[in-house]
Design a protein around this nucleic acid. Sequence first.
DNA 1: GATGACCTGTGA
DNA 2: TCACAGGTCATC
Length: 262
Amino acid sequence: VPEILEVEQARTLLDIAALDRVVVAVHAPDAWFLKRGLTPHGVELALLGRRFTTARRRGKLLLLDTDGAGPVLGLHLGMSGRVLVDGAAAGDPLVYASNRDVVAWRRFGVDFAGGGSLHLRDPRRLGSVELDPDEDRLGIDAFELSARQLDGIVSTSRAPVKAVLLNQRRIAGLGNLLADEALWRGGVDPARCAQSLSADARRALHRAIRTTLRVLGRRGGSHTGSLMPERRPGGVCPRDGARLLRRTVGGRTTYSCPVHQR
DNA sequence: GATGACCTGTGA
DNA sequence: TCACAGGTCATC
């Protein structure tokens, strides 16, 4: 899933359906899922009797504030996690991940007074739950990224520009699909050394990131990109019909057009 | 900054 | 059985 668009869908669901309800039970059957020393008992103590007051998001990290000076609950969806409230998830089914409902995949959850629940379902167990997460380990949220900020980030790194876009300490929220889509829309070669981008290329990339988030957000998620159907052996560029390049860049499988991405 | 590790499901 | 998957972290 879960890139910034899916996490924002989850945040909206939490905002609409999970706030101001009293937690009467906490389920943390998978201790491995709890991070930074958190234990099943610890998270139960921290949440029992409290209500969530705000649903926030920074990059791909979900943040639930609690009442009465309680802790912030941090949820991360990893590669296959989904948030469900009262048994329903937000948004489209995930691509590249199972969408079946297997009870064993409920890695964490709470029950609310009067019935209903909040659950995190994650087949691959790469998600996580923590209390009072360090929100500043994450960089500027991709939705907030200004052209000037992108300039500063891109012009100070010699890594491939895609690796820079994926680095959550720099920009928080972009994942593999969104990065490829934005670079494709902006006409920028993912493997290009970030520092070497011209001011024009940086501007084009910034516009492309904004467009990608807006358009794919409206369509329903990271999997709705124009490049997505061609993300396969033999895929061609939807813009100019060239055979797409498939490489590993920044450690991730990368598709790009050798003709218009320079 | 690139690499491998983490974990598990799916489809070829 | 194998390759691969929209993420992140420690390590060289």
